[in-house]
Structure formats: structure tokens, C-alpha cells
Amino acid sequence: MTKEEAPVLLEVRGLAAKAGSAQILKGIDFTVRAGEVHAIMGPNGSGKSTLSKVLAGHPAYEVTAGTARFDGQDLLAMAAEDRARAGFFLSFQYPVEVPGVANAQFLRLAYNSIQGARGRDELDPLEFDDYVREKMKLLEMAPAFLDRSLNTGFSGGEKKRNEILQMALLEPRLAFLDETDSGLDIDALRVVANGVNTLRNDDNAVVLVTHYQRLLNYIVPDYVHVMDGGRLVKTGGKELAIELEARGYDWIQKSAA
């Protein structure tokens, strides 16, 4: 399952970051290889979402120490859009609503931005319409979603499906899914998980950032990391997630202290 010889996609070393004066990440080390699924779990406020956003290039955070290499490049030196173009994808915990831009327009802009960067052909609206409808079947989304304004008035589950639809369109090498499972009912969770599993292959990797073990029944991780106080305090296999679900986070916090 895990191939030690598979190429390294992401290598994070000693990463520390702050938002304003609050030091949130205090030294993160981890490595993701092609074909792997990782889960980062932890209590609220442990820094999970911050780690995703820092790696995606969110301007509200300042990196104070450490490095992150993505596919051999210095990820932290790149603009957010260049990280996306290089194949880094973040599924947002709270996708932004943009009334006034049709979902189809946005999806095509994103798709063409990435295609252009990869030296591939861009699609005109008609070509794109065929292409995106095919991808939407994977997420069991009705075509009506194309005409609605981006995420506007979407339910929580619809927004998350739309995020994974973007993942399907942009074909990233590494996808961070930030709390993609929170707020989903079990049917929506199954659809989203099935979508992610279908998109997985030996050349890409997925990092699931989650508070709950439930998602991991559907997308089975190779590694589970526990984050607390801005550090990864424990790493194990998928059994660790089950243990966390049964015992909570307290015992980790105590044993790490």
C-alpha cells in the first residue's frame, strides 16, 4: 500500500507560522508521497486548518520558520495561484459565496487557468459544458448547479460537493481536504468520499484534515497524524483514528505533555 520508493510530493520541515501576533504552528514535520492518503486529526484550535491555509498560500498567515517543498519546488516562495497551478489543491472548510458569478463561469476560469499553466488547451464555454457535466456525475450533482451563482445559497453538502468537483476538474497532485466531512449527512458523505476515492491514483495524494473519524471509514488513510498545540504530536496507522474516536484527544494531550 505505502511505497517507500514512491516520489515525495510534499516535504514539510520545521514549519512555524503566525496570524497577527498569535503563533499557531510551532514546528511541523511531515512527508507525503505519491499514492498516499494522510489524515490530520486534532481538537478544535490545534492548528489543522491553519496548516492547510499556510500551505495553500493564505495571505493572513506569516511563515516564521521552516520549509515546504512541493514536487521539488519551494512551495512557500510561490504565490497562491502558482501553487494551484503547480498542482496543490485546498478544499475549503467554508467555501466562499460569490453572488453574480455563475458556477460554470468560475469553474471554467479555474480550469483554464490550470490548463494554461500545464500547456494544455483551454476550453470554450460549450466544450467546457460537456466536460464539466461528465465530472458532475461523479458527485451526483444536477446540471442546474452550473447556472447558479458560485456557492450562493448552496447547502453545506452542496458546497462540499462543489469543492470536490473542482478537485475533479483541476486534477491536483496533492489535495488538502479541510473538514470536508463536517456538516455532511451520511448520504452526502458517501458521495463525496466516493468522488475522492475515484480521483485517487498512484501519482497523486490526499491529506484529509478532520475532526472526526467517520470520514476515515470511507477514505482509508495510510497514516494518521494527531495535531495539538501547533505540532504533530503522534503518528500512526488507521487504527489510531479508531482509538481517537473511542478515547477522545485527552490521552494524547496528556501523554504528549
Partner: peptide, 26 residues
């Protein structure tokens, strides 16, 4: 909002234009 669009590969100037367009088109 700007970050969301940039995270999908749109250059910052295009992200800003798209959001301005959306604000008015709404």
C-alpha cells in the same frame, strides 16, 4: 474571496476583476 479564487489558479488581478464583476452583476 480573493484568496479563494487565487487558490483555484486565477492570478490576483483576474481574481479581483472577477469579484468586482460579480459584485456588480449581482
Amino acid at each position: 474571496e480573493v484568496f479563494y479564487l487565487r487558490s483555484r489558479g486565477l492570478p490576483e488581478s483576474l481574481a479581483r476583476s472577477v469579484l468586482t464583476y460579480a459584485f456588480a452583476a449581482d
